[in-house]
């Protein structure tokens, strides 16, 4: 049973019976007390299904040989409104442009998903993921290895059946 807000209007023009109102309230709470349908999600065992458009912590896609797909084009740090991406580009021994340093400060990130939207090679993605707890703050600056290790699903950013989210 989803939680809903029930709007009760004050009775107009008539004197309210406090006693009756109190008893009605008690009856209502009693009804809920014995109601076996609880809305709590027993988290570690049960999980809420999150929408495929959810924008969580990032993930870097990799090629089959384990290299990051990122080509260090610099569009994500450029478009990032919170300036949380640090990128230093370079060239590997095969002449491929790749990010020597790619860091996302997940604390600064506002999870707008624009990095994913702007990425020309579909490398950086925001993830469908919410379990991000760490023991130290510095663990929230995700470096390239960390981003590539993430294996949670990536965000769709929009619903294919409803692209304008109407």
């Amino acid at each position: 049973m989803p939680p809903t807000v029930k709007v009760m209007r004050r009775p107009e023009g008539v004197r309210t019976s406090f006693l009756r109102a109190t008893l009605k309230g008690m009856a209502l709470t009693f009804k809920h007390m014995v109601n076996p349908n609880k809305i709590t999600v027993q988290y570690p065992e049960e999980r809420m299904e999150i929408t495929p458009r959810w924008r969580g912590t990032h993930r870097m896609e990799t090629h089959a040989d384990g290299r990051p797909k990122c080509v260090a084009c610099g569009l994500c740090p450029t478009v990032c409104p919170s300036n949380c991406i640090r990128l230093v580009g370079g060239e590997d021994d095969q002449g491929n442009r790749y990010p020597i340093v790619y860091e996302i400060d997940e604390f600064r990130c506002i999870f707008c998903g624009m990095c994913q939207e702007v990425c020309p090679v579909e490398a950086i993605h925001v993830g469908v993921h919410y379990e991000n707890a760490e023991y130290t703050r510095d663990r929230f600056v995700y470096d390239l290895d960390r981003l590539m290790e993430q294996d949670h699903p990536t965000s769709l950013l929009w619903d294919p059946s409803d692209p304008k989210s109407e």
Partner: peptide
């Protein structure tokens, strides 16, 4: 290849 081109 604008993403990897320095002229971009």
């Amino acid at each position: 290849d604008c993403p990897i081109c320095d002229q971009s």
